[in-house]
């Protein structure tokens, strides 16, 4: 793409004792780009996402991120305070299980408002207005703002999690199987929503999925992983329509045509 990359991973490896989580992965994410990481269970997708988002410490290699001042900073070199600020303002993390990404005992408004309060918003009315605004963007009615997520359906919880992450207008969002566990029609609506928001906000997204249809719908580029290594990478349509690696061909051909 056009500009300098937003996130750069170089030679990332992660070992769990003698087992390999992820081996020698290098990739770049550009501003506004959606990168899908696909592969079967146990291929190292989630490990890779953990490494990129600094939730896991790499055994080797490094991750750099372009801060708002244009500096490309090695994330391992950032202080704890800087890193946490980055995570709650410039980044988002949408988890497969909404219960992991939401505060289940806190109302929808409080969930969305938490990041705002964390960056210093101290006006209740403004926080609430912003929360309602974001609920509308993810198609949750304003009258649900005081309900807590336990009263929400799975799809609604996932949309709420997205609103909670996007409220500080991050530049980079990590998504771990965001449509996992949802039924097909709800999945379709959620994908539509994510696609709209990504385009509208110019988000860069790293999305981990085992569902090739999700990758095709959302992503510009994709990375295919197997046994902890990246075996193929390229433009999504190109990889899916004309896979080069035998494993990718197998993956693509194993999808049932609807």
């Amino acid at each position: 793409m056009i500009e300098h990359p937003l996130l750069v991973a170089e030679g990332l490896s992660k070992n769990y004792g003698p087992r390999i989580g992820c081996r020698d992965v290098s990739l770049e994410v550009h501003p506004g780009e959606v990168l899908a990481v696909v592969g079967e269970s146990g291929s190292g997708k989630s490990t890779l996402l953990g490494l990129l988002s600094t939730e896991l410490a790499p055994s080797a290699g490094r991750v750099s991120y372009r801060l708002r001042d244009g500096r490309l900073a090695d994330l391992a070199g950032l202080g704890a305070a800087e890193k946490r600020l980055l995570m709650r303002t410039d980044w988002g993390f949408v988890r497969q299980n909404p219960a992991d990404g939401l505060r289940m005992a806190v109302s929808a408004g409080g969930n969305v408002g938490e990041r705002l309060m964390a960056v210093g918003w101290r006006h209740y009315g403004n926080i609430r207005d912003e929360a309602i605004d974001w609920l509308a963007k993810v198609e949750i009615d304003a009258d649900r703002v005081d309900d807590d997520p336990r009263a929400f359906s799975g799809g609604m919880r996932q949309r709420l999690q997205i609103a909670r992450n996007l409220v500080t207008r991050p530049r980079l969002v990590f998504m771990d199987e965001p449509t996992g566990g949802l039924d097909v029609s709800v999945q379709a609506r959620l994908l539509d929503l994510i696609r709209g928001l990504v385009a509208e906000l110019g988000l860069a997204v790293v999305i981990v999925t085992h569902d090739l249809a999700v990758a095709r719908l959302l992503s510009h580029r994709m990375v295919v992983m197997r046994h902890g290594r990246v075996i193929e990478t390229g433009i999504t349509d190109q990889v899916l329509d004309d896979p080069r690696e035998p494993y990718t061909q197998l993956l693509v051909s194993s999808v049932l045509a609807a």
Binding site: A80, G109, G110, Y124, R128, D146
Partner: peptide, 22 residues
């Protein structure tokens, strides 16, 4: 402890927010 060390007190306000909302 981490939150105190970094003076991250947004969470405390979430509690007060919940009070007002309820």
């Amino acid at each position: 402890r981490q939150l105190h060390a970094l003076a991250e007190y947004g969470l405390m306000h979430v509690k007060l927010y919940e009070d007002i909302a309820r």
